[in-house]
Design a binder for these strands. Structure first.
Lengths: 205, 205
DNA sequence: AGTCAAAGAGACCGAACGTTCTACCTCTTC
DNA sequence: GAAGAGGTAGAACGTTCGGTCTCTTTGACT
């Protein structure tokens, strides 16, 4: 059966998802009702409940959307050397923080509203974080495997701090501190590599 | 029977405040209604509204309470040398993260729920963060004034990251990364002090 | 003894919440 | 042209929300 390629993936649904993305990220989750999302997406309540089981599923879909965007961002940051990839990734993160719509990490914000570890929304947050931690660890491991895990943890901690404070103080200063911290971390990591075979920045990511 | 021997600062009010502290921190703010707080504090609604203008003021009072606890914690961490004070402060923060009730930074969590910068709750968050940033900056300035500001920003960023992720992954690993990061930062800061003259470009592990 | 503020008990309000429902419309595809 | 999925429109559900109200009881201090 040939699927009609042009229209069918439901335009109303994507409008709903885009609106949810914008509003949930900008104003939080618990504090916005579905009435507002439905209205702003120019969709009726019935349409929302045809595409999603309820608000909760919409929230998870929202986080899934952000997760996909982050993975695309990470993929776009690939460079020839893992160190440069880490730098490019940090720069991409910094660009996000500098953007006027920046309102912190969507996942950290969501976790603050859904503390219950068993809740599907919280689980979505954990899943995303696991992916990110793993991705960064792999990049460090390409430089040197031994100390990759703690270095990656350090990197993620800096990122979390930068994302958390990016909308609570001057974003420019936050970015400067973040980029500098990452650079110091990467430099120190590469510096210690000498003596343990393998030339720096040689491997392709 | 209500045995009230020391009723001056209103026993019901402090019961209310303690309950709000526990519940807001554990479960978030928007997702808990005053009904639950009133019930758990064993107080009637009328009593709540006698002591507070409304939920909003109760939330601010909750954050004020946490702020006071943090200042006490910082005061208790004072050592003979500023470097040791920074270490003690980090250890105190790590202890908080290790505690089973740890649920992240109350202020970061509150900011996630109140993104509007003009909102009183958000303002309370900013005020606390300003105090903390200032306190850490002063400690670094006691070692060397020139590079104190960026070093303090780095310290606070690590703290934010540790607090944010402390309840999203293994607290022990988070603490280890945090303490190690702070130690590297302090070491690098002290090391560069020799020779002074304000060398540019701080390098932290 | 009398006063008065603090607190308890609980009914009550309007609004907003997430959710469900029926009824009708408009396409595409068979 | 019948079928059926996706969409619109709007009413309504029961619950919970934050907040206000009246009335009574308590206990400390003049």
């Amino acid at each position: 059966m040939a699927r009609t390629e042009s229209t069918r993936p439901s335009e109303a649904r994507s409008r709903l998802l885009n609106t949810a993305l914008k509003i949930f990220y900008a104003d939080g989750i618990h504090s916005v009702g579905i009435d507002r999302i439905v209205e702003e997406a120019q969709v009726t309540r019935a349409t929302l409940y045809r595409h999603f089981l309820g608000k909760e599923e919409l929230v998870v879909a929202y986080l899934t959307e952000v997760d996909a965007a982050m993975r695309a961002q990470a993929a776009a940051a690939r460079k020839d050397s893992p160190a440069d990839t880490l730098r490019a990734l940090s720069e991409a993160i910094a660009q996000g923080i500098r953007s006027p719509e920046f309102r912190g990490c969507a996942f950290l914000n969501a976790a603050a509203e859904y503390p219950d570890p068993d809740h599907p929304v919280h689980q979505a947050v954990l899943a995303h974080r696991e992916w990110f931690q793993h991705t960064v660890t792999e990049l460090f491991a390409l430089i040197e495997e031994e100390r990759a895990v703690p270095a990656a943890r350090h990197f993620v901690m800096l990122r979390d701090g930068a994302m958390a404070s990016g909308c609570l103080s001057d974003p420019e200063l936050v970015c400067e501190t973040f980029i500098r911290g990452v650079e110091g971390l990467v430099q120190a990591f590469i510096a210690q590599e000498e003596g343990s075979g393998g030339s720096p920045g040689e491997r392709a990511i």
